[in-house]
Design a protein around this nucleic acid. Structure first.
Lengths: 236, 236
DNA sequence: AAGTGGTCTAGACCACCTC
DNA sequence: AGGTGGTCTAGACCACTTG
């Protein structure tokens, strides 16, 4: 039974995948050379390559020149996590989006932020606090620092109309991004903004983005209680 | 200046990527056909394909037959998240791993778990509670349900010696996995197990794994306060 | 209907890494 | 030093989808 009839390399990937699930190939085992597998399936080596690379990308196989292909020992769950801009997140859930700028000032980056920016000196920054609402209900409270060295032109943008989130994404695409996810208790001030009681558990996403080696922004986004982050479904 | 000299397709990917960052190609814009780009870079079309597919996988481009290649509008941050088994997580942080089985019983799946398994009936399950310790300090408290229909042989395994986590990964690889991440307040019982005060905010990972369409296990892993989940660094 | 990306081939050379 | 995966080519056909 050939599973699909659409693309040969997906068939092959599924066959090999099945053998791993079957324990035909066990963690740590070495697979035949690509060429032998190509002979077995009667196809070009590059087709096998395509299949094997796919499995390697998913973390199931490890490939080394001369070392051959082996099944990953101690496999892990690899998922991809897509973090949209907050407006899209809200709209894709079928809610109406609204945005409110709470605070806007120019300050030098405190040590903590400078550390996120991997800099020793304190850089001039824009400090923003804002609220993203879904159907009028507070959804995300974010505290953001934007490097005025990297993005000086943001001083001329009216950030009460468009969120810094969106302006940056549209005008200053980043080349790298660090993400951290953790749980925290919200402070009284945060609770007030979010319209919830203090000491509630909330999910926090922190992101720092860069263009080349210059830091663009650091943002700490506090989500409404009960918020669930759902990575894309994944294969072993 | 050609950035790398190693692989042509990476050069091309970086060049195209640069043009997106440069705003040469803006969100929503249509790129030239692969063949034209191949002519520009004087290479085979399949080399361009390799580069474009890479960018498409990262979520930066969208490709459609006949529709051509366009720059993603409203870009999002795409990261990959690797979730190792708890023992490896602890050991890779340089701590000594220890495991303690708290509870082990055979019960029918409550409605909530049956829902996670996408089943209407209540399946016979193994219900486990266990603690993973790092240098003797509670690190993860997990509550796990294992389907005895899918994995009957687990009844013969001594789960006080090896964690279900590891036994399953080694003996019952899964083909699919659903993940959810959220923040919660720990209960008094959980706090006692974790050696922390009640009402602390904790990060919770819930996973359901499947082999084909049969559910294997559902696990809810409660992490120590302050735990940070860190996806792999990502490109735009 | 036709244009575009997706797949595949057969062969070649290269780069890395163990053996 | 040799074997393995990684890349590349030139060309072909296919499959999807839009004009």
């Amino acid at each position: 039974m050939k599973t699909t009839r659409k693309s040969r390399w997906k068939d092959i990937r599924n066959q090999i995948n099945k053998r791993i699930l079957n324990q035909t190939y066990r963690p740590g085992d070495k697979l035949p050379r690509d060429e032998d597998i190509a002979n077995e399936f009667d196809c070009a080596r590059s087709t096998v390559q395509r299949a094997m690379r796919s499995l390697a990308d998913e973390g199931m196989l490890q490939r080394k020149r001369k070392g051959g292909t082996t099944v990953t020992t101690d496999p892990f769950t690899r998922t991809t996590l897509d973090i949209p801009i907050t407006r899209r997140d809200i709209e894709s859930r079928g809610h109406r989006y609204h945005y409110h700028l709470i605070h806007n000032s120019q300050e030098r980056a405190p040590a903590k932020i400078a550390a996120c920016f991997k800099q020793t000196h304190s850089e001039p920054c824009l400090k923003l606090e804002s609220l993203h609402l879904a159907d009028g209900r507070p959804y995300v409270y974010e505290r953001r620092w934007i490097s005025l060295t990297t993005v000086p032109e943001i001083q001329n943008v009216d950030l009460s109309e468009i969120s810094a989130n969106e302006w940056l994404v549209r005008n200053r695409p980043f080349s790298r991004c660090d993400v951290q996810i953790h749980a925290s208790i919200c402070t009284e001030k945060e609770a007030e903004y979010m319209g919830i009681t203090a000491n509630t558990a909330v999910l926090i996403l922190e992101r720092t983005t860069w263009i080349s080696e210059s830091p663009i922004t650091h943002v700490r986004a506090l989500h409404e209680p009960g918020y669930r982050l759902i990575p894309n479904g994944s294969m072993s």
